[in-house]
């Protein structure tokens, strides 16, 4: 990142190669439209390129930084779209999901970490997993989720908290880290 901060395109290219699949995959998982995912991924990488000097290693990895940028932009975009558009995006994603998963060997995260995190999420009680996915990948607020599920606000908040605690404890026990 020091070289990127000094404006070295080759150093930036290395970072791009290392994280492009993960970045694009997250953007696509959230917005569900390829062209929009490309825009978000492009913005995220250019943000890293243009503000590399502000990167602080003590606050997390470059990958985590990129994920943060992608998540914020994708959720902002999602919250500007209508419910109809969100549903259409979800349909497109569902139609493309299998094809994409089958045709690529490139991984969004180191193989072992990705598998471990998926197991952690799969092991959550379904009602906890649902609120986490709706919040993080769907960009819904806890009030919207409560309305959607017909559950009290406090219950939704509680499920979010319990889900993260459970994931975190399992991560600590199995030493999953990013």
């Amino acid at each position: 990142m020091q070289l990127v901060a000094k404006g070295d395109p080759r150093a930036f290219e290395t970072i791009y190669e290392r994280h492009c699949t993960a970045v694009f995959s997250l953007a696509y998982r959230i917005c569900g439209i390829r062209s929009t995912a490309e825009e978000i991924a492009q913005e995220a990488f250019l943000a890293i390129w243009r503000s590399g000097a502000r990167y602080d290693r003590t606050r997390g990895s470059v990958r985590t930084w990129l994920f943060g940028i992608v998540h914020n932009r994708a959720i902002d975009m999602l919250r500007r779209t209508t419910v109809h558009e969100r549903r259409r995006a979800a349909d497109e994603q569902a139609a493309e999901g299998l094809e994409a998963a089958e045709r690529t060997d490139v991984e969004a995260a180191p193989r072992e970490t990705a598998r471990s995190v998926r197991v952690l999420i799969d092991e959550l009680p379904s009602e906890q997993r649902r609120v986490v996915e709706l919040a993080y990948f769907g960009g819904f607020t806890h009030e919207e989720i409560a309305q959607m599920l017909g559950a009290p606000l406090g219950t939704v908040k509680g499920r979010m908290r319990l889900a993260l605690e459970r994931m975190r404890s399992s991560m600590a026990a199995s030493e999953v880290a990013l």
Partner: peptide, 15 residues
């Protein structure tokens, strides 16, 4: 830390 791990669960799609 649990939230930061969530993106790793996303199925990979090549850009």
């Amino acid at each position: 830390a649990a939230v930061d791990a969530l993106p790793a669960s996303v199925p990979p799609i090549e850009p």
